[in-house]
Amino acid sequence: MFEAKLTEGLILKKIVESIKDIVTDVNIDISPSGISLQAMDSSHVALVSLNLSMDGFEHYRADTNMVLGVSIANLAKVMKLADNNDQITLQADQEATHLKIIFENPKTERTTEFNLNLITIDSEHLAIPETEYSSVVTINSGEFSKICKELFSLSETVQITTNTDYVQFSVEGEVGSGQVRLGHNDSEKKEDQTILEVSESVQQQFAIRYLNMFNKASTLSSFTRLCLHQEQPLVVEFKIDNLGVLKYFLAPKISD
């Protein structure tokens, strides 16, 4: 038996919105300590990894490990039934054929229930190597979103360069070439901060289209953390306060 109640249901709604353009069918792993999922996009360029700790739920109970196969597109449709102020409860029996989703608004006394049919998904789990990222950039999530969005109108690809002084996002396209450079900024206004932790400089290129999809999660977190290593995919990380973390992995563009 699995049951989890999230007081701030909007968070779950935002998570689903943040992954639905990247992955279609997903196995949700339920364990006594929390909820997680890992899934790749169909082209195997991007991977979504979500970890939610039981501590962030108002109520959490999972007797055993369970795998719930869910169509994210259908889950997103169901989530549309939720009001932004609703509490959300997820329920599934052992050997479940459906996931029961309950939306409750204690103020308006409105309750919505939906039994989402589960599906069997033959997905492979990837082992992501423990990596010590040589460059970690923490940047306001709204600002990073805006940079990616505007650069995408100029080029399909962005080159990210890090060094101890700045992180640089540069593009080169038919329109011309240019870059946005952000220096280390630990100003008093926390939201303006850009924190650079660079032990080794990195220069890699990425498809901006994917970054724009990841940035849908910027509503979940004030800051985006970019973890880079010259020989590894980029990690774009959004911490969800008191609940867990949503990470996206993106394979770099490489010379043919």
Binding site: S43, V45, A46, L126, A127, K253, S255
Partner: peptide
């Protein structure tokens, strides 16, 4: 020219 690499080149199957 740059081509898009795959995550399979970096991560192994469990």
């Amino acid at each position: 020219a740059k081509g898009q690499s795959s995550l399979a080149a970096f991560f192994t199957k469990k």
